[in-house]
C-alpha cells in the first residue's frame, strides 16, 4: 500500500495549479485534504503523473456572506463548515449534515472542494450541494465558468469537471427565513458512508406546501432529488396520505445498488422510511418557525 511514483508540485496560486493541471494533459491530480485521494493512490487505483498540492494556496479556505449567497472556498475543511455560525444560521440542514461526515480526524482534513470533485454518491456534501441548489465555480486556463450542482454529478465518482478544471468556489443561495428542514441518515456505524440518507427543505404558502426540495443519497450512482415526490406534495396540505403517496413515488423512482452492507431492497425500504421521517420533521420545524 504505497503509491506509485509521481511528481509533486506545491502550487502557490490557483493560476499555477490550473497551469500545472493543463500541463499534465489529464494525468494530473489536485490534492487538498487527501482523505479519498491518498487511499486511492496507496491502493494504486490511480496513477497520476503529477500531484498538484493546493493546500498552500492562500485565501481558499473561507465562508463568506455575499448578501444573496453564501460563498465557500474550496479549501474550507469539513470541520470549518461544521462549526461555522454562518452555516448554522443560514443552512441548519447543512450544519446538521456535517456532523455525519466521516470522523473528526477526517473532517479536520477533508475539504468541500475535494468532496464535491470526488463525488462519492454516498457522501453528504454532494447531496447537500444538490439540495441547496449550489452553483459551482470552476476555473481552467480558459477562464472561469459556473456549473449548477444539478448538472455537476454525472455518475459515481464522475463529475462535469473537465481535464484542466479546478473547483474554486461553491455558492449557496440563501433560503427564506423560517424554511423547514430535516436531515436523516442510516449508516452501519457512526461516521460510515450512508446506506441511505434523505434531506428536506420545505416552505409553505398558507397551509400548503411550497418550495419543497428532497435530496437523497446512497440509493444510486449520484445524489438525487426526489422530483416526483416533490411534485406530489407541492401545493398540497401536509397529510399522511400525501406523504405516503410521495414515499411510494420515491421508492418507485430509486434504483439503488446492492453491496456488502445493504441490498437494493433494504435501501429502497430505508429511503422511504427516511423520507417520511424527514418530511415530518421538516414540516414540524416549519410550523414551529412560522407560528
Amino acid at each position: 500500500m504505497k503509491p506509485p511514483p509521481f511528481d509533486y508540485l506545491a502550487a502557490d496560486c490557483v493560476e499555477a495549479a490550473v497551469q500545472a493541471l493543463a500541463g499534465a494533459g489529464g494525468d494530473g491530480k489536485l490534492i487538498a485534504g487527501g482523505q479519498s485521494l491518498m487511499p486511492m493512490l496507496n491502493f494504486r487505483l490511480l496513477r497520476p503523473s503529477i500531484l498538484i498540492d493546493i493546500n498552500r494556496i492562500p485565501d481558499l479556505a473561507y465562508i463568506r456572506d455575499d448578501g444573496n449567497e453564501i460563498c465557500i472556498g474550496p479549501l474550507a475543511r469539513h470541520r470549518m463548515l461544521e462549526t461555522s455560525d454562518v452555516i448554522a444560521r443560514q443552512f441548519p440542514v447543512l450544519h446538521e449534515a456535517m456532523g455525519y461526515v466521516a470522523h473528526l480526524a477526517i473532517r479536520n482534513r477533508g475539504t468541500i472542494g475535494g468532496s464535491l470533485s470526488h463525488a462519492d454518491p454516498a457522501a453528504e456534501l454532494p447531496m447537500m450541494s444538490l439540495l441547496l441548489d449550489a452553483c459551482l465555480v470552476v476555473q481552467s486556463l480558459s477562464g472561469r465558468r459556473t456549473i449548477t450542482a444539478r448538472d455537476f454529478f454525472l455518475g459515481a465518482l464522475t463529475t462535469a469537471l473537465e481535464e484542466g478544471d479546478m473547483l474554486v468556489e461553491v455558492r449557496l443561495p440563501k433560503l427564506p427565513k423560517g424554511t423547514g428542514w430535516a436531515f436523516e441518515e442510516v449508516a452501519r456505524r457512526s461516521g460510515d458512508f450512508a446506506l441511505a440518507s434523505v434531506a428536506v427543505i420545505i416552505g409553505s404558502d398558507g397551509d400548503r406546501i411550497s418550495d419543497l426540495r428532497i435530496g437523497m443519497m446512497g440509493i444510486g450512482e449520484t445524489p438525487m432529488r426526489a422530483l416526483d415526490a416533490e411534485r406530489i406534495l407541492t401545493g398540497q396540505r401536509y397529510s399522511e396520505a400525501t406523504v405516503t403517496a410521495a414515499v411510494e413515488a420515491i421508492r418507485a423512482a430509486v434504483e439503488p445498488n446492492t453491496d456488502l452492507h445493504a441490498s437494493a431492497e433494504y435501501r429502497r425500504h430505508l429511503v422511504g422510511v427516511l423520507a417520511q421521517q424527514a418530511l415530518a420533521r421538516a414540516w414540524a420545524r416549519l410550523r414551529e418557525a412560522t407560528q
Binding site: R188, H261, A262, S263, E265, Y266
Partner: peptide, 11 residues
C-alpha cells in the same frame, strides 16, 4: 445480524 439480515428475515 446486520440490519440487512434483519430486514430480510422480517420481509
Amino acid at each position: 445480524i446486520s440490519p440487512e439480515r434483519l430486514f430480510r428475515l422480517i420481509e
